[in-house]
Design a protein around this nucleic acid. Structure first.
Length: 965
RNA sequence: GCGAAGGUGGCGGAAUCGGCAGACGCGCUAGCCUUAGGAGCUAGUGCCCUCGGGCGUGCGGGUUCGACUCCCGCCCUUCGCACCA
């Protein structure tokens, strides 16, 4: 066939021929003065580690496809690239390689640029920004000063997370699962004076404006919502017996009457003063142990609750009850007020704590399901008990050691009376659930107060029975298996045992109690956020210096704007070091008084660098301003932002905060930086871990998944590609073997771009074969094409020609839609493949219509050109054109071509597909006509012979559904 | 525990608004062509089958003429958060 005669697909020389053409012609240079049809596409800029693997490629290839396609659609597409170039990895790599972080970083940038070039991925390189260069970080420092000037940057002494391995503090967001985000070490708490950005001032807006981000993935929005963690409740002031005010935060003011003790965080400032002498040793020991324990231990919910009694008491402001004050590490100093009122009946943690330490548990909220269960021990009653209960209409069942009677809260009084009447004189029974009470032969004691709790415990002790003893009534109930799951609940239910508020329904309870607290001056409504202020100081060298000076006379003095940048000293890099380790760096003069002063020796978190870079791309070379308001207002918010989900919280939250702050300062006219966000999935590849040698390269894997070095069995699993796991695939090898176009097409085709997916070598061969077929098809039929500009004369085509013509126009529509609005690259590729599958046999026909071939072959090349740009350019010239595909308008389609000659309509009988009938489009589009046509069709008639037709439903253009008897 | 996403052939996946399940590709089978290949071409490929059909989208129900799709209840996988009062 054609394959033997045509020249073969020499991707290497094709790609070499076009690789630099696009940059040379400046197709991706954008004039930001442009006003119409602008589109700002942005990839999250990479950390220049010097090696981008095929997984990184996915991100940039998607962006390149869209940029090329949108350019052909007539947009001025700004797609810039920069480098998030400060930070620890550069320092660590520099230490390993005995070089300077700057040299390592700049060399890597050059290498990465080369990788983009090999991929054919294009950017407006004239706008390249590099965060570690003074011309950029000068403006990062400007940003810091602006935040400072507006009260949004402040220095404070605080207990912060310090990573001993990285030798620097970390932001809250950088402690993931109790470990340093970077190195996995458990950070230790340290009290240090550090710079913070007041992101909490924006907590409410950052939360509220999530509603505007309808074009963000829902999970990212949810993650931010959870991270901000707004909760509404009340602050209630308890008074200690010594006379201190002890303020607690609670989301459940309605449970106040059930507060039977208080718990302070071990590091709470009042602990020392409150602790009585006889409890001092125990409290001190507990606190030391708690502070030493890393966050990891404190974080586990599984862990048993521990604590220590201070010996002190407070008074419950709502009922005057005297309640003990404890300390426990399940209360965090960093949330709320660092102190809680414990309501063990309705808080799971308090419940566990109270059971362990024998503290009273008083139910004050009814279960919302109203369920009540009585447990009656066998020896407490007569033999006929069950029969009597049944006769009274109560559900009774025998269980181990006795009977349970289940009823509704409304039936409580009657049921309790009945049980009591059966009770032996020295026995007792109990009731738990929506209501809680103990039944004695001479009294029924509801568990409604501390006094009742005492009475119950005393009576039970008196009655004996070694099995049911406890320090509290609830502890006694807890020993009865039949009550499993009934003793604790956290429902919002009707209040009970709560003085004047008893009977208040659940949905009103919180507000009613809060209003009352405010009126009484005992508390007030309060809102709490999980979000903390952003700690931005870092004690490491490779970052933007914090532009602040400390003067004995003037105090804290910001570096004047005209003295920026505060340069990172160009010194020999000697390993893990900070600016404080550089002799002479700190020495300076006070900008205010000219006296001797010291510079701040910390650098900024790299997330500060990346929190505003999208603005700098608009005016990257302006040395007067960070950015120009008019210009950024025209280009931002970014139309399409693309990156990994791993930035769902840190970078994306910080950027939103900075944008809002800049908006408030009048520097920008928009409040959200990224209008549309897409988070692409990771590419995974098998990774092998040897118990002795750690992550090993596939070349070191012996047969049967054992280590070639030591023979140990390996742990194998598909994991996100990363250098450290040694499971990356080098794009250079793929490109050498199959070409960049094949890698691009495979990357797009492998699956939906937001999903994680395994890299498979076989898959890329499929993409390669496809490109080869396109090559053979086009190059082999150049002679058969009509002159440039000809399009098919539909009227003169035969059936196959018309089918191909329609297929072509359908493909144009599908590819356009898939790329531009659906982000569905895999189906776009699939539909182009289908077109090729239909075009190839037609083109081989000796009587193929030259004009149709011209139209479809030209269109095919254009549709393919954003995906496989090298092949696109080459073929475009081969078929006679002289311009670049980027200068040609994206193909359009004709509506008329989407209409079929005859529509095949499936006919269902009783829900099963039985017959397909072909009808003209006009019939298919009309329900009545379609039904008639179906019923008239011989095959359908045959199906209906001898049965009774009950219903015939015709759905225009879709199907006919017949229901028979 | 809370939140999110997902579960479809041997594999990656498609089915966009409730309307022909499995597009497209990989792999596999057979044949052709070459015959050193991981090259090319053609045909086939969800499962079962008595060849008429039957069964099939994690499981169990429901709504509907019709359900991968909607509703209810479960199970499993992945991710994020997690003693947040």
């Amino acid at each position: 066939m054609a394959g033997q005669r045509t020249e073969s697909y020499d991707f290497a020389s094709i790609e070499a021929r076009w690789r630099d053409s696009w940059q040379e012609r400046g197709f991706f240079r954008v004039d930001t003065a442009a006003r119409d049809q602008t589109f700002y596409y942005l990839n999250m800029f990479p950390y220049p580690s010097g090696y981008l693997h095929v997984g990184h490629g996915r991100n940039y290839i998607i962006g390149d496809v869209l940029t090329r396609m949108k350019t052909m659609r007539g947009f001025r597409v700004l797609n810039p690239m920069g480098w998030d170039a400060f930070g620890l990895p550069a320092e660590n790599a520099a230490i390993d390689n005995g070089t300077h972080p700057r040299d390592w970083t700049l060399a890597n940038i050059a290498r990465s640029r080369e990788q983009f070039r090999a991929w054919g991925v294009q950017f407006d390189w004239e706008r390249e920004v590099t965060t570690c260069l003074p011309e950029y970080y000068r403006w990062t420092q400007w940003l810091f000063l602006e935040l400072y000037r507006h009260g949004l940057a402040y220095k404070k002494k605080a207990v912060v997370n310090y990573c001993p391995n990285c030798q620097t503090v970390l932001a809250n967001e950088q402690v993931v699962g109790g470990q340093c985000d970077r190195c996995g070490t458990a950070p230790e708490p340290r009290e240090l004076a550090q710079w913070f950005f007041r992101i909490t001032a924006y907590a409410e807006r950052l939360l509220a404006d999530l509603d505007r981000l309808s074009n963000w993935p829902e999970n990212v929005v949810k993650m931010q919502e959870n991270w901000i963690g707004k909760s509404v409740g009340a602050e209630v002031t308890f008074r200690t017996e010594r006379g201190d005010d002890l303020v607690v935060y609670t989301t459940r003011p309605d449970t106040l009457w059930g507060a039977t003790f208080m718990v302070l965080a071990p590091e709470h400032p009042l602990v020392d003063e409150l602790t009585t002498p006889e409890h001092h040793a125990e409290v001190a020991a507990y606190r030391d142990q708690a502070l030493r324990a890393s966050n990891i231990d404190r974080l586990s919910t599984e862990r048993e609750k521990t604590g220590a009694f201070t010996g002190a008491y407070a008074v419950n402001p709502v009922n005057g009850a005297r309640i003990p004050i404890w300390i426990a590490d399940y209360v965090l100093m960093t949330y709320g007020t660092g102190a809680i009122m414990a309501v063990p009946a309705h808080d799971e943690r308090d419940f566990a704590f109270a059971l362990k330490y024998g503290l009273p548990i008083l139910p004050v909220i009814q279960r919302s399901d109203g369920r009540v269960r009585a447990f009656v021990p066998t020896r407490a009653i007569e033999r006929a008990f069950a029969e009597q209960m049944t006769a009274a209409g109560l559900a009774v069942a025998e269980v181990d050691g006795g009977f349970v009677v289940d009823f509704d809260a409304a039936d409580m009084d009657r049921a309790v009376r009945l049980i009591q009447s059966d009770l032996q004189s020295r026995a007792w029974a109990s009731v738990a659930g929506a209501r809680c009470a103990f039944i004695f032969h001479d009294a029924v004691v509801p568990l409604d107060s501390a006094a009742a709790d005492h009475e119950i415990v005393a009576r039970c002790a008196l009655l004996g029975g070694k099995s049911f003893r406890g320090r509290t009534a609830m502890e006694i109930l807890h020993q009865i298996p039949a009550y499993g799951g009934l003793l604790f609940h956290a429902d919002l239910g009707t209040m009970q045992n709560s003085g004047p508020f008893s009977g208040t329904p659940g949905e009103k309870a919180k507000d009613a109690v809060t209003a009352w607290l405010e009126a009484e001056g005992k508390g007030k409504k309060a809102v709490n956020f999980r979000l903390h202020d952003w700690l931005i100081s870092r004690q490491r060298y490779w970052g933007a210096p914090i532009p602040m000076v400390y003067c004995d006379a003037c105090g804290e003095v910001p570096v004047p704007y005209d003295q920026l940048p505060v340069l990172l000293p160009d010194v020999e890099f000697i390993g893990k070091m900070g600016l404080a380790d550089i002799p002479g760096y700190a020495e300076t003069t006070c900008p205010k008084c000219g006296g001797k002063a010291r510079r701040d020796t910390d650098t900024m978190d790299t997330f500060v660098d990346s929190s505003w870079y999208y603005l700098r791309f608009i005016n990257p070379h302006d040395d007067e301003r960070a950015f120009v308001r008019d210009d950024v207002d025209r280009w931002l918010p970014v139309n399409q932002y693309v990156g990994g989900v791993e930035h769902a919280i840190l970078h994306l939250l910080y950027s939103r905060f900075i944008t809002k702050a800049l908006y408030d300062m009048g520097h920008a006219g928009f409040e959200e930086p990224f209008a549309r966000l897409f988070t692409q999935g990771m590419i995974c590849h098998p990774a092998y871990r040897c118990p002795k040698h750690g992550w090993i390269h596939p070349s070191e894997v012996a047969a049967g998944d054992t280590c070639a070095k030591c023979g140990s069995p390996l742990a194998v699993g598909s994991m996100k590609m990363s250098k450290s796991k040694r499971n990356t695939v080098d794009p250079a090898e793929i490109i050498a073997r199959y070409g960049a176009d094949a890698e691009r097409v495979y990357t797009l085709f492998m699956g939906p771009p937001d999903r994680d997916i395994d890299w498979a070598e076989e898959g890329i061969r499929g993409a390669f074969r496809f490109l080869q077929r396109v090559w053979t098809l086009v190059v082999g039929h150049v002679e058969s094409l009509a002159p440039l500009g000809k399009t098919a004369d539909v009227g003169s085509l035969d059936d196959e020609g018309r089918a191909l013509w329609r297929r072509y126009h359908q493909t144009v529509r599908k590819v356009t839609e898939d790329l531009e609005t659906r982000f569905s690259f895999n189906t776009a590729v699939a539909s182009i493949m289908e077109l090729v599958n239909e075009l190839a046999p037609y083109a081989d026909r000796p009587d193929a219509d030259p004009a149709l071939l011209r139209e479809t072959v030209d269109g095919l090349i254009l549709l393919l050109s954003p995906l496989a740009p090298f092949l696109g350019e080459e073929l475009w010239r081969r078929v006679g054109h002289s311009e670049s595909t980027l200068e040609v308008a994206w193909p359009g389609y004709t509506e008329a071509a989407l209409v079929e000659d005859a529509v095949e309509i499936p006919v269902q009988v009783n829900g099963k597909l039985r017959v397909r009938i072909a009808v003209p489009p006009s019939v298919a589009a009309d329900a009545e006509a379609l039904r008639a046509a179906a019923l008239d069709h011989p095959d359908v008639k045959a199906r209906l012979a001898g049965v009774k037709l009950l219903k015939a439903i015709a759905v225009p253009n879709k199907m006919v559904s017949l229901v028979v008897q």
